[in-house]
């Protein structure tokens, strides 16, 4: 996915060519370049769609200072895989707009895509998806993490995510008291 910076090219001719290109180049915080289909980027990310429409895409690599190369590689990978799969109509509509449509279960390839990621890579991808306004990717990654939390006791969750319990015994008892009468009704 990585491309070399084409430094020797004449800027003018390059600009003309860029306008017709069907890919955009993205630059990670650590300076690596990635190429992604313009159509997929615009369809899956509201932020990139806005940049493409507003002409603020840099031909030499649009700076995404908030996203590391590993996460950006996953983002681009996801976009390309998404472009190759045949998503249902409902899926497309829910990934384009910020609507409150119920979450559609991840498709098989999406499940595999997030399953292979380490915790850190998964967290970075959530952050990247959130930053780029990629609703569907955010759904899929958050779904994966929420699955890791469901049905577990607080102790198990601390173990899975390596979280330190910073409560005292008394404080825990206090929360338990609060919870004892908490109704979920109104």
């Amino acid at each position: 996915m990585e491309v070399d910076k084409g430094k020797g090219e004449a800027e003018e001719t390059r600009k003309v060519a860029e306008a017709d290109r069907d890919t955009v180049t993205l630059k990670s915080s650590d300076g690596k370049l990635f190429e992604v289909s313009k159509e997929a980027a615009a369809r899956l990310s509201t932020v990139l769609a806005g940049m493409i429409a507003g002409g603020s895409i840099d031909d030499n690599g649009t700076d995404l200072k908030q996203i590391g190369s590993e996460a950006l590689e996953n983002v681009v990978d996801y976009c390309n895989k998404h472009a190759n799969s045949i998503p249902s109509a409902a899926l497309i509509s829910s990934s384009i707009s910020f609507n409150t449509a119920p979450f559609k279960e991840p498709e098989e390839w999406e499940r595999k895509f997030v399953d292979r990621l380490s915790h850190d890579a998964l967290f970075d991808l959530v952050e990247a998806a959130n930053f780029l306004g990629m609703e569907r990717l955010l759904d899929v990654t958050c779904h994966k993490i929420s699955e890791m939390m469901k049905g577990k006791s607080p102790d198990q969750i601390r173990e899975v995510f390596n979280i330190k319990n910073d409560y005292t015994k008394e404080e825990l008892e206090e929360i338990r008291q609060e919870l004892a009468w908490a109704f979920y009704d109104d």
Binding site: F103, F123, V126, E127, N130, L138, D139, C142, H143, I145, S146, M149, K150, S153, P154, I157, R158, I163, K164, N165, D166, Y167, L172, I175, L179, A182, Y184
Partner: peptide
């Protein structure tokens, strides 16, 4: 995870699970 991204996860969990998560830290 930054708080914003964590909130995205919380929003995808049922209230009952969220209540339990208050015990974590």
């Amino acid at each position: 995870l930054p708080t914003d991204a964590f909130v995205e996860i919380l929003l995808r969990l049922p209230t009952t699970t969220r209540r339990l998560l208050r015990f974590v830290c």
